[in-house]
Design a protein around this nucleic acid. Structure first.
Ligand SMILES: [Mn+2]
Ligand SMILES: [Mn+2]
Ligand SMILES: [Mn+2]
Ligand SMILES: [Mn+2]
Lengths: 217, 217
DNA sequence: TTAATTTTTTAGATAAGACTAAAAATATTT
DNA sequence: AAATATTTTTAGTCTTATCTAAAAAATTAA
């Protein structure tokens, strides 16, 4: 059995691995979890003892199959709870994360599988992220950042890279939501800002914004 | 803000107060929480500092208004989650308690109030216990133990005193459930066992069983 | 009203998880 | 290759929530 803290470490390492696929450094884990490197060293030793990751001093860590399994299990719970909050309890997509951070640690296989069924086996969460099934499997969604799309091309918003409340509220303000069609009108060479067509209206967004919106094209 | 452990102490003390209304002893808290008296002494000092209970050495403790408020808040969450599990996720009444023990500590006022609305503002949980409303108010349900009912009288099962899985499964076996009409046929003077009529069938139950079923008559 | 028993508190220890400061190893510059 | 900078680990401390053993207070019995 794994503690709340251990589960958070595993989830953080899992997410870091999807970006870099090298050994994950102590410092990067510390940064992600807003803790200190020395705390991370302590914890990864414990996790190595529990066979959920491989650790060699100064070499960073890699999750084992067991470690990946536990991490995806926690992510499955996090995302299913997010769907529940939005679909059933009138939460908006910028309100769900903190509550899901708590709910993801509830231990009950029956609970999570019944919740999955109750929600109709959703494939993605309110931010467009894929939900692992009971066996931890999920298909990778084909997506690119809006910032990589060339002028005159168009696509559909299917996800966000940043799911902070601030960013999501920005998107709400401009009515940018999942499933929304977006056409890139032009790109400003000086600052890479984009003028896009959405809801039949032209708006200009910074490159930082465009860098956090996923598009299927 | 209160920790999981502090919340569990407050809940335990609250429950003990509904039975005895005297100062609650260190030992009784220890027994209820399956911990040691010395641990209880440590914790109640901390809780007294936080103004949720009044503590004088060797005198036991009493919850303050704030303490009662926090305790009923946790109980509200526990019972609402139990309703959710039974009504929406196909749990049976003997499966919900352990999961609710975890869920009751999730912190989010919006979550619990939306859940309440989603469930249709239920007044009682799957074991017949009343659910406090947003302000901590709930009406006391008029009830007596089945063991106190005289032969030839009849009533409706509206709650259970023991909600352990073992006891609830026993009730399931004999199809004794909430809302069920029960008529007491006779009482055996030797061991106070009862012969009752339920579902048009006569069954005999021990005094221990009858002592854990609440009846409205 | 003493004496024995039970309850409660205190003292000291432990484990988890975090922190700071310093040492050791690795990586980057000159 | 040596010097410097960065990263990682170690050592020691702190807090929370436990525990055991012993001391103190309160209760019950003789
Ligand atoms: Mn989230
Ligand atoms: Mn999400
Ligand atoms: Mn319960
Ligand atoms: Mn209940």
């Amino acid at each position: 059995m794994f503690t709340l803290s251990e589960e958070n470490y595993l989830k953080a390492i899992y997410h870091l691995q999807t970006i870099s696929r090298k050994g994950i450094s102590t410092n990067s884990i510390a940064k992600k979890l807003k803790t200190k490197a020395s705390s991370v060293t302590d914890m990864i030793k414990k996790l190595a003892d529990k066979k959920v990751l491989v650790y060699k001093k100064y070499q960073g860590v890699t999750l084992t199959d067991l470690g990946n399994q536990i991490a995806t299990g926690v992510i499955r719970k996090h995302r299913l709870w997010e769907v529940f909050l939005v679909d059933k309890l009138n939460f908006s997509w910028d309100e769900v994360h903190d509550v899901a951070e708590q709910l993801e640690h509830i231990k009950s296989p029956k609970l999570i599988n019944e919740l999955d069924a109750f929600l109709g086996f959703p494939k993605t969460d309110p931010h467009g992220d894929p939900i692992p099934d009971k066996d931890g499997e999920f298909q990778k969604i084909e997506k690119r950042l809006l910032s990589t799309i060339e002028p005159s091309q168009l696509g559909v918003c299917i996800g966000v890279k940043d799911s902070s409340s601030e960013f999501l509220k920005y998107l709400d303000k401009y009515q940018i939501s999942l499933g929304q069609q977006i056409k890139v009108i032009s790109k400003e060479p000086f600052d890479d800002s984009l003028t896009i067509l959405i809801h039949d209206k032209e708006i200009t967004i910074s490159q930082k914004i465009a860098n956090n919106i996923y598009i299927q094209s």
